[in-house]
Structures are given as C-alpha cells and as structure tokens.
Amino acid sequence: MKIIAWLTDGTWEACVDATAEIASPDDEVTLLRVSDPELTEGLHGAYAGLVGRGRHRHDPGDAIESASRAADEEVLAAAGARLGRPATTETRRGRLEREVVAAIGDASLLVVARDGDRSRVGPHSLGRATRFVVDHAPCALLLIWPDEPDRTLPPEPHGAPKDPGAPKHPPHGERPQPPGRS
C-alpha cells in the first residue's frame, strides 16, 4: 500500500507518529511537504511598495524564499529520522490544498492532522486547506488530532425543553467547556 503523510508546521510530528504506527513493513511511505508561494510573493510586493528606495539587494522576499526551502528540507529530514523506516520525500510549491490533492496520485491512504482552531470542536478544528483536502481527496484518509484533545464533542445541551424538532447539538463552532464543568 502506498501511504502519503502531509507534513505541516506545528502538526507534522503527530502525522509521522501515526504513519509509523499503521504502516506495515512492505508499505511504501512518502513524506509530503507543500509550501505556498503567497507568503514570499506578498513580501516581494511589500518591498516593491516602498517607493523610491531603488534597490533590490535587500528584498526580504528573496531571503524568506531561501529560508523557506531550507526549513522544508529540515522538516523532511527530521520527519524521516522520526519515522525510523525508509520513506521517499516530496516537496511541492503552490496552493496547499490543490498541491496536496494533486500529490496523492495512486496512493491509497493520506495521513492528515487537524490543524484548525483547536479550542473549537467541529468544522473549525480543520484549517481551510485541510478542509479542502478532506473534501476532495480521491483516496482514504487518516485524520488525526495533533495532540490529545480535551474533548471532541460539543457539550450536551441541558435545561432546554425536549423538543423533538430542535437540533440535538448547538451550532457548530461553539467553544467547548472544559470536561466536567458543564
């Protein structure tokens, strides 16, 4: 089986651990890293907006472009070491969600971490790009939490009249209470 683990900042460790746990020795593992050129393009733009300065040797967009490539390499190397088994690596540049879906190819499993606002359960626990990947991936997904969540269900509404027509849960996106306090 071909498995792809999508590694994003802040959550890649959990993806690597989950991949190591489920991959059998004859599975083929790819570590995928995608960076969005929007950030560097924005900085090129901000620098171009400084009218009159006339020089280009200080463009911070260039500095960040090379730093970003170096950071990608570092993450892939660290992830390879953490995985503790042979794996291929792949780096792509472009809109995150599109590039990830395009990278799946004939893989049968994609490992993705929830990377949204973890103080909220439900749809907000997925970032925008991850949401798109979950919705549009052509393969099976392993969607993991990057750390132990306090809880994954919104609190049970209590005190509300038992109306069979009313929704069972409060609207998505409400802040969950810490366990045991509601």
């Binding site: 802040g10 900085l43 620098y47 400084l50 300065r53 911070p60 500095a63 730093a67």
Partner: peptide
C-alpha cells in the same frame, strides 16, 4: 523600512525554528 527589510526575515526564521506557522 527596518521592519520590512530587516525584521521580517528574522521573524520568519524564528517561526521556522520553533516549528510555528510563519
């Protein structure tokens, strides 16, 4: 100018070093 040209690359490097989205 100092913020855009000099501080931004340092902030990016700091975020990358901490494994935080930049």
């Amino acid at each position: 100018d100092a913020t855009i040209v000099l501080l931004t690359p340092v902030v990016f490097a700091t975020a990358a070093k901490l494994g935080v989205r930049a």
